[in-house]
Nucleic acid binder design. Structure first.
Lengths: 293, 293
DNA sequence: ACACGTTACGGCAACCGTAAGGATT
DNA sequence: AATCCTTACGGTTGCCGTAACGTGT
C-alpha cells in the first residue's frame, strides 16, 4: 500500500525542484527525502525522479504518477478537514444545557480552539442517552446515568436541588420545609427523565405513589410559570431558578431532613482516543467550581 | 499522514461487518485489524467504529470518513494501475529492433506477463540515447555506448558483421576479402551512429578518410537495395542480411584479417529499482544465445 | 461453550536523524 | 570551495503474529 508521507515528499521534490528544498519545505532531514523517494520508487517499481545537478525533474513515470499523488494528498487533507470541521458535539440535558453549560462551552472553545467548533445540543435526558449510543454526540452531560456498558461516567457536579414556591405562598418566608409538608402540597412535575423522582425516593424515602402529583409539564420553564401561577410547588436545580429567586419571582427552600443534591454526570464512550475533543472537554470540566456556585 | 493500510482495514471492517471477517478478507491476523482501527482512530482523534457483538458499524465520524476512505483507496489503486499499464518501454536501434529483438520481446511478454504490456520503439542510436536520458524508454538496446554517467551498460551480444556484395560481384564466390580489397571498393554507408566507422578503425585500423565512401544512406534496408543495385559494397550485421544471403539476393563475406563483430549493448538507468520491468528485461537478455545465432 | 474483540509480548522491519562520502559546478 | 544528493549507521518506533485474556450471547 502506498505511503502517503512518501507521496507527499515526491510532490514536494517536484514542486520545489530539489531534494534539499523539499526537505526544508517538509521540515525533515534531507536524507529522509532521499529515502522517501527511493522507497516510493521501489514500491511502484518505477523510477520517478531524475536527479540532475541543480534541478530534479520527473521521469515519464513520475509525470504519470504526479496527478494521482496530488489527488491523494488533497483527498487525505479533505478527509481530515471534514472530520475536524465536525468538531466536538456536546449533548446536554435541558437544565444543564440551559442553565449551567453555556459559559463552560464558550470557555472551552476559547481555551482550546484546536479541537474545532463546538456544538451544543440540548435535549431530554433519555434522548441524550440515545444520541450517545448512536455516536451522534461525543459527550453527554446528564442528570442521571445507568452505567450501561461501553461508556465511562464521571460525576461532574453535585448540584443543589431546591423546593420552589410562589412569593405569596405560606412557605415563602421560610428557609426549609420538611418531608411531611412536601407530601401535602401538589408537586408539579418537570421534564421526564431528570431523575427527580429517583432522588426523592433515595434521599427522602418518598415512593412515587405517595406524592400528591400536580401537572406533569415538559420543561423547567413551564414548571416555573406554573409555580408562579400558584398551581403547586416543585423541585428544581437551584441554578435553574437563580434569576427568579434573586428577583423575588420565586422563593426557594431546602428540605430540612436532608439537603437535596443531584449528581450531574459527564458521559463518554469508553473507546475514545486519549486526545479526542470529547475527552479534552471531560478533563476541562473536572476542575469546575464545586457544587453550589 | 494517513496510513492507507489502516484506511483499507477500516473500509474492510465496515464492508465485512466485523473485525474477524475483515482480517480474513485482508489476509492479516485479527489483532492487526484491532490495531489498525485503533491507530486510525488515534490518528484522526475520532472514534470510527462502534464495536457491538456480532455487528460492527461506524460512528457518525466513521460515516463521515468512509467516502473519503473509499476514494483514497480507489485513487491509490488507479495510480498503480496507471503506472503498470505503461508497462515496459524498450528502445532499440533500427537493426536491433528490426532484425534481432522482436522474438525476444514476444518471449519476454509471454514469460513474464506481470510486468505489463511491452512497447518496442525503434529509432536511430543517437535518438535512443536521448530517449534514455529523458526516461522516455526504460531500456535501450544499442550498437554503441559511451559510458555516460547515470546509466549501466551490459554487453548483450557480440554480433558478427559481414561485407555484403551483390550476387554478380567478383567477390561473390569467395568467403572473405582482405582489408586492402575493401578499401578499393566504394563502401555504402548506412544509418549514422551505428558505430561501423569506429569498428573499422578499431579492428582494422582504417581511418575514416581512407575509405572510398559510397552514398550514405539512412537505413539498412536502403543499403541492401543499393548493394543489390551495384552501387557498391557495405558492412552490415550478419543477422540483418540473413534472408538475402539465404535467398541468394546478396552474398556475405568475412574480413580475412579479423572477423568483425559489433558489441550490442543493453543500457539502463542505474537507479532503477531491482524489480523493475527494465531490469527484468535486462536479465532476460543475459542468457541469450551466443553471438552468431 | 462460543464468538468476538482486546491486551500482552517479542521479533523484525521501517523510519529518521547525524555524520561522512562522492560528484558536479 | 560550494552545492547537492547518497551512503552508512544507530536508536527509536511501528508493525505484525502468537498467545492469553475479557465479555456478552
Amino acid at each position: 500500500m502506498l505511503n502517503l508521507a512518501q507521496v507527499e515528499t515526491f510532490v514536494a521534490v517536484v514542486e520545489q525542484g530539489g531534494f534539499h528544498e523539499a526537505a526544508r519545505h517538509l521540515g525533515v532531514s534531507q536524507p529522509t527525502v532521499t529515502q522517501h523517494i527511493k522507497k516510493l520508487e521501489a514500491d511502484l517499481v518505477r523510477p520517478l525522479i531524475v536527479r540532475a545537478h541543480g534541478s530534479a525533474g520527473t521521469t515519464s513515470h513520475g509525470a504519470a504518477f504526479l496527478p494521482f499523488a496530488r489527488t491523494l494528498l488533497r483527498i487525505a487533507g479533505r478527509a481530515r478537514a471534514a472530520l475536524d470541521s465536525r468538531g466536538l458535539v456536546i449533548g446536554a440535558s435541558s437544565n444543564i444545557g440551559v442553565y449551567l453549560l453555556q459559559p463552560l462551552v464558550k470557555a472551552f472553545a476559547e481555551a482550546l480552539p484546536d479541537f474545532g467548533p463546538v456544538d451544543l445540543r440540548i435535549a431530554g435526558n433519555p434522548d441524550i442517552a440515545r444520541r450517545l449510543e448512536d455516536s451522534e454526540v461525543d459527550i453527554g452531560l446528564m442528570e442521571w446515568w445507568d452505567d450501561r456498558p461501553g461508556f465511562e461516567a464521571q460525576v461532574w457536579r453535585e448540584e443543589p436541588v431546591v423546593v420552589i414556591v410562589p412569593p405569596d405562598h405560606p412557605w415563602a418566608g421560610r428557609a426549609s420545609v420538611d418531608k411531611a409538608e412536601l407530601l401535602a402540597e401538589p408537586l408539579i412535575g418537570g421534564e421526564p427523565g431528570t431523575g427527580t423522582a429517583r432522588l426523592l425516593e433515595r434521599e427522602l424515602g418518598i415512593a412515587p405513589e405517595a406524592l400528591k402529583a400536580g401537572p406533569q409539564l415538559g420543561s423547567t420553564e413551564a414548571v416555573k410559570q406554573a409555580v408562579r401561577a400558584g398551581l403547586g410547588v416543585s423541585l428544581t436545580l437551584e441554578s435553574a431558578v437563580r434569576d427568579e429567586t434573586a428577583s423575588g419571582a420565586l422563593h426557594a427552600l431546602s428540605v430540612r431532613e436532608r439537603p437535596l443534591a443531584k449528581s450531574l454526570y459527564a458521559i463518554l464512550a469508553d473507546n475514545l482516543p486519549a486526545a479526542s475533543p470529547a475527552r479534552a472537554f471531560g478533563e476541562f470540566l473536572r476542575p469546575a467550581a464545586p457544587a453550589g456556585v
